[in-house]
Simulated scan of single mutants.
Amino acid sequence: MSALCPFCAITPTAWVGENDLAFAIRDKFPVRPLHTLLIPKRHVQDIFETTPEEREALHQLALERRSAIRGEDPDVQGFNFGSNIGEAAGQKIFHAHLHLIPRRPGDTPPPPARPND
């Protein structure tokens, strides 16, 4: 645990879900309503430094939160799910975390896929 890490300082009362190795919170600056962060309890810089057990715990928590979000908002029809790794990729807090971003009809669409040239 890092004393300077904002994720390490989050108390369990702010968690919206947890298991033995990970916890979930609502994003403080959500891209969309119900935007959720999935965070390993152990302080580790990025998702590539997590153990296989931590990755599985994060995945299980993602499945649980996906169901919960759909229960809270039946308009949710999809999700963006991923992680920014490193400053060049936009990582702002250097404690591994995954974004689970609910998507609804009418949201600003994600960038289109580009065909192979």
Rank of each mutant, 00 (worst) to 15 (best):
Q91A: 07
V16A: 00
L58M: 13
C5R: 10
P6C: 05
F7Q: 03
I10D: 08
I85P: 00
F94Y: 10
A96P: 00
V31T: 15
E72W: 12
P105K: 14
P112M: 03
R65S: 14
A14G: 03
R26A: 15
T108S: 10
S83E: 12
G82P: 05
A14Y: 04
G78S: 07
P74F: 06
L37S: 10
G17N: 05
E72M: 15
P12T: 12
H35C: 08
H43S: 10
F94E: 10
I47Q: 01
F48G: 11
P12A: 13
P102N: 01
H43G: 09
F29T: 15
F7Y: 10
S2H: 06
V16R: 03
A9F: 00
A3M: 12
F94D: 10
D20W: 04
A9N: 14
L4R: 08
F79G: 05
D107Q: 04
E54L: 10
E87P: 08
R32S: 13
H59I: 06
A22W: 03
P109A: 10
H99Y: 13
P74N: 14
P52I: 13
L34Y: 15
A24L: 08
S67W: 02
F79Q: 04
A24K: 04
V31P: 05
G86S: 05
T11S: 09
H95C: 05
K28S: 15
L4F: 09
T51M: 08
A14V: 07
R104I: 06
S83Q: 09
D107A: 05
A22T: 08
R103H: 03
M1V: 04
L58A: 00
